[in-house]
Design a protein around this nucleic acid. Structure first.
Lengths: 135, 135, 135, 135
DNA sequence: GTGGTCTAGACCACC
DNA sequence: GTGGTCTAGACCACG
């Protein structure tokens, strides 16, 4: 499955769907012109309400990622891949910058921040390969 | 005052106040035994609702950072500095971990993530105002 | 063929087909007794779903514009030209009235509306290709 | 009341709300910085479901017309008035152009179109409410 | 089958 | 009180 919902992380479900679809488009898991799963199908798979999926899909339409084809479904728009790829980097950069700003404001000294970051970077790197898609 | 509220970043205002007070205690900007600004004063300075400040202060009291002194106001508890200093690292680590989790989920490859992080780390280091030993 | 489908303007495709067939009958592009293109052919030409064409043709039959001839196809009924010509004005008047109602509701002042209309009227007049006698 | 809902005109209710709020902002009926009616209040007044109003308001937020102030309500953003005013003209122009394109395609001859338009323009002008445009 | 809209009712965080 | 989210269930138009 392309999407994992974490109901308890504070992020709205529809927003998790939006982001993960964008990520899937960014890294080519879903290609331009392809149909995304239907509202009802995705809702069933994630065991969430169809309205929630519909809401996510609507946001993706107004973000120019998806396009609705009447009676057929929703397809990934041309040029969405590049768009999502850029956006992914921008988004992450923003969030990283935000956290670093907060660290700076807390006056954590730079070496300590750096070691903290490196530690966590190492951590995420080591767990990364494990989480392939073997299912 | 050392608090910056960003009303538009999705984080609860009271939570931003809580975190930033903790940081201020951690780095000695507010010392143990000192009075924090009154609810009304802080609310006026930040142009936020006094109830929001009150709520933040309540949380800080139940977190053993502040103590109410009858007829006087709220002071920073003894031992709060050490406590907050420890917590500061924990809080920042959490936020860093969150961001990295998101990066991993987006399948950005590790080298790209690393360069992104290093870039921003460099950036925050160079713009740091009063740097060096923060304590 | 004289039909242009705009899949992205919110109007139902079958309805665009219906209206444009009526217009074609009204201005004599298709004459009484003539065969209209087959469902499959029109669907192929417009690259839309055959069901959609079929639906449009059904509506045109119940509107007494088309008549089915067994084993042959659909032909324009006798008296359909006059009928469609009348209806053409009615249909256009309706749409014009709708737009003006919207303008009024938006409280655009009348002079501004008038100049907008005149401007666009000028525009359509100058770009009109084969004008004059519509038959 | 600033908004009239016509349940039977084919347009989605939330969309009617969106447009009419934009119009109200465009002509200064609601000023920048002012609160719009609360979701529940407007829903009660229009006797529609609060979710429908909420949906309209969300669209207005992503269109940079409204801004949410936590626990307070939704206010009209700075610069929204100019934005809405421009958009109003653009929108109407588009719709007028569309109708004229359709008239042209139907091969209605220009004089007939012009008289149709003038007739309806006269009509809308004479029924224009209170403040008219006798100026 | 598809998406789009609407209602109803519920819970949450925040002011 | 405010907006924000989610569920559930319904109806529509379209292919």
């Amino acid at each position: 499955m392309l999407i994992n919902i974490d109901a308890s992380n504070g992020l709205a479900i529809y927003d998790q769907v939006v982001r993960q679809i964008k990520y899937a488009v960014a890294n080519g898991t879903i290609r331009e012109g392809e149909l995304v799963p239907s509202v009802r199908e995705l809702a069933r798979d994630l065991t969430i309400n169809p309205n929630t999926v519909a809401r996510a899909y609507q946001q993706l339409q107004s973000a120019n990622v998806l396009d609705s084809v009447r009676g057929t479904g929703l397809i990934v728009k041309k040029s969405a891949t590049a768009k999502c790829r850029k956006e992914r980097v921008t988004l992450l950069r923003q969030r990283i910058r935000e956290v670093f700003r907060e660290a700076k404001q807390s006056r954590l000294d730079f070496p300590e921040l750096k070691s903290l970051v490196d530690e966590e970077l190492e951590r995420v790197n080591s767990t990364k390969p494990a989480n392939g898609e073997s299912e």
